[in-house]
């Protein structure tokens, strides 16, 4: 048995480094490929003109607008619903209460439901049963159902992270729970809410399967929430699968989608910091 020299790399070390480096390499490959092919197509004109020739030429203006509208509908519905539910779960029920456990378990299942199944549900319920048809409204509402578990979970964690002393202190001063919630707990839980919001927006922007049968394929500029609108992700899918010669614009759209996701992340971090700073000062 010779003594192992320090320079000799053991097999496990080699394997673990190999895994890390190859994952990094593949990641760079994916991003590099999209950046390389997409950045040439990207221009102000691409963002502000309508698609022509089934998307092979022209830009993505109506698609960006539709994406934003779908997202707006989704958040307008899911934000109040999830914060309300989270407050009830975190502030008014104990972790072991039956009601709380029931709601949490159903949220766990909801979180795991594949997006295509949300698409099926959205199509059957919003598009057909409620008669909303293929529309931005149907798509947004379907997405709202889908992001609900993420939003509730992180909002609940945000509220539970607020120290109990604040609640006791507020109660001891004779403040109502409503006041305590609005003025003290909500601001203190904001970082948690923002984290949830980012995850939710991220998932909603990236979503495709749930939107195919709810918001539809139409790539014209939407005139109302009841119009069909094509989201950015569906645009990428359609260009690459159904339109021969659509790859160039698909690359550019994919790049826009990735940049949007990065922007959402950055903005959320910034807002959280800004909010924290303001809360301590005033």
């Amino acid at each position: 048995m010779g003594e192992k020299s320090k320079n000799q790399i053991s097999l496990p070390t080699f394997i673990v480094w190999a895994i890390a480096l190859s994952v990094t390499a593949v990641f760079c490959w994916i991003l590099g490929d999209i950046l390389w092919h997409g950045v040439g197509q990207l221009s102000w004109e691409f963002l502000t003109t309508e698609p022509r020739n089934a998307g092979r030429e022209g830009g993505i203006a109506p698609i960006l607008i539709s994406t934003c509208l779908i997202l707006a509908v989704c958040l307008a519905v899911s934000l109040p619903l999830s914060v309300g539910t989270a407050v009830l779960l975190a502030e008014f029920t104990t972790t072991e209460s039956r009601f709380g456990r029931l709601v949490r378990r159903s949220l766990d299942v909801l979180a795991g439901v594949p997006s295509i199944v949300f698409g099926l549900f959205g199509n059957a319920f919003f598009s057909i049963k409620l008669g909303l048809g293929f529309s931005i409204l149907s798509g947004g509402l379907t997405l709202a159902c889908m992001v609900l578990p993420i939003l509730i979970r992180s909002a609940e964690e945000g509220f539970r992270a607020v120290p109990t002393e604040y609640r006791l202190g507020a109660a001891a001063l004779g403040l109502s729970r409503t006041t305590t919630l609005w003025k003290l707990l909500l601001p203190a839980a904001t970082p948690g809410l923002v984290v949830g919001l980012v995850l939710g927006i991220g998932r909603a922007i990236a979503e495709t399967a749930a939107l195919i049968f709810t918001s539809g394929y139409v790539d014209r500029m939407p005139e109302s929430l009841l119009d069909s609108g094509r989201s950015l992700s569906i645009h990428i899918f359609d260009l690459s699968m159904n339109v021969a010669g659509g790859d160039a614009n698909a690359y550019a759209s994919a790049l826009v989608l990735l940049i949007l996701l990065l922007l959402v992340n950055g903005m959320a971090t910034w807002i959280a910091q800004f909010w924290l700073a303001r809360r301590i000062k005033s």
Binding site: P163, E165, Y166, L168, G169, A170, A171, A172, L173, G174, L175, S176, L184, P187, A188, R279, I280, K281, S282
Partner: peptide, 24 residues
């Protein structure tokens, strides 16, 4: 209980100022 606690105040073992300014 809220009106009661305005008239009967509590100080806790661990000081628990709110995450606001002194004035607020």
């Amino acid at each position: 209980a809220i009106a009661l606690r305005r008239r009967v105040g509590t100080i806790f073992q661990k000081p628990n100022p709110f995450p606001f300014s002194i004035w607020k």
